[in-house]
Design a binder for these strands. Structure first.
Lengths: 237, 237
DNA sequence: GTGCCACCAACTGTCAACAGTTGAGGCGCA
DNA sequence: TGCGCCTCAACTGTTGACAGTTGGTGGCAC
């Protein structure tokens, strides 16, 4: 991907000259890392002075970092009460899965409809197979992210990516403590065949394929089936 | 709807006790109003000290308000250079239309699939007809917003609404200076028939109907046709 | 024991001053 | 005249202190 492997979660949009990192962004990054690592539990509170002390800054940038994290949807702020790491109900998680499947689905539709290049998807699928063989779960996760992101990036402008990112991030947080029961090689195989399907299909089918791929994966993690009304017929168009 | 007609754009999520308004939220609201009214043009710069002076506060809350508006996606910040009202390319606008159609489409699918109540949609459609008769454009716009919002609210948890809101808000800003050439009564009729269609259909068709409703409306405003690959077959499911 | 009230500690909200940076305009020099 | 350097004004970034709010705690009357 880009120049940094560990890219900032807080993207300063729409230009290249903004390579400067402000303290607030720095703090936001470190905090979000902590949150995703589970060092701060869902529902946990973020104390401004404590964090300012730990980061070695004043409270100003910390407060600003909180607003960033709020935008990212991983903390919530209640006036005069503080900021808390978000928690998700199972209904919310299901919604997020549906949203993700919808977004990536339409990305696939646009991708096929505009005849964009699909090699990156195949490459990532190949890497997924390798990571599965090596039983490297964390690399696998990262590659899954990259697959979806590549789909959205190739399909449209930043609008799609931004929206997708918001959803994916929250979903990742919601799934932080849930492990997938299916084997890595099974999951990798699904990516490979998905990429193969996309290679030679029409927009409508592409959307249906991607959507079902994500829906089945997501609901499987929850240990439940996909509601029938969400299953999309493979429309030809 | 809710208790306030003029509800805050910056929602403090997930509880009722947060009725308190902080200065930053107040400023964010007033600024976003100015932006949507076009008093600050797209690409325009927001000066911290000037706004602080005008609002009668220090720069702290103003900076915080900027972060809120950044989250809302209506301004962008470049370190050491300032914050600017976002501008949209036509490609971005098209993406936003596709996103909106996708989100509301899946909302319709969930709505029908879970057999939710549809009366609010019919009520709003009726009001739209009336507003069209009265040739009241601003009320019409507000009702359009309410129709879409009702769709998303009824369909799922707040996740869908939040995501949809983000997209809709940006789209509204992008279309701030573009007027629809079609007559109000024509547009109102489409809502009425859409609501009628939703009343007795299956999830797949509901999604296709809503999606095409929004796609055709959106691209019409741009004065171009809907790309064929975006047109969804009315799948039966 | 129970209920009420005042106090208090721990926060978050706000402020005004200070530091750092950027881009522009003036100035000297070739 | 044209080029490069310097200075400077106008910003944004950061700080530490002060103000306001909240929930709990202890004492007091009953």
């Amino acid at each position: 991907m880009g120049r940094h492997d560990h890219r900032s979660l807080v993207t300063t949009p729409a230009d290249g000259l903004a390579e400067r990192r402000t303290l607030a962004v720095e703090i936001a990054d470190r905090l979000s890392q902590s949150i995703f690592l589970g060092e701060i539990a869902p529902g946990g509170r973020l104390n401004e002075v404590e964090i300012a002390k730990r980061m070695g800054t004043s409270r100003g940038p910390v407060r600003e970092a909180f607003r960033y994290l709020q935008d990212l949807g991983i903390i919530e702020a209640v006036p005069h009460h503080g900021s808390f790491v978000v928690e998700f109900s199972s209904a919310q998680i299901k919604d997020l899965i549906v949203l993700r499947s919808t977004l990536e689905g339409v990305a696939a539709r646009m991708l096929i409809g505009t005849r964009k290049d699909l090699t990156e998807l195949h490459v990532v699928a190949m890497h997924l197979e390798r990571a599965a063989e090596a039983k490297n779960g964390s690399v696998f996760k990262r590659l899954e992210w990259r697959f979806s992101r590549a789909l959205c990036e190739a399909a449209g402008t930043g609008e799609l990516v931004t929206t997708w990112e918001q959803v994916y991030r929250r979903l990742r947080l919601a799934f932080a403590n849930i492990t997938d029961n299916r084997t890595l090689s099974d999951r990798a195989g699904r990516y490979t065949s998905l990429a193969a399907t996309l290679k030679e299909t029409v927009p409508g089918e592409a959307e249906a394929a991607v959507r079902s791929h994500i829906l089945s994966g997501g609901f499987a993690k929850l240990g439940v089936g996909v509601p029938e009304y969400l299953v999309m017929d493979k429309a030809i168009s």
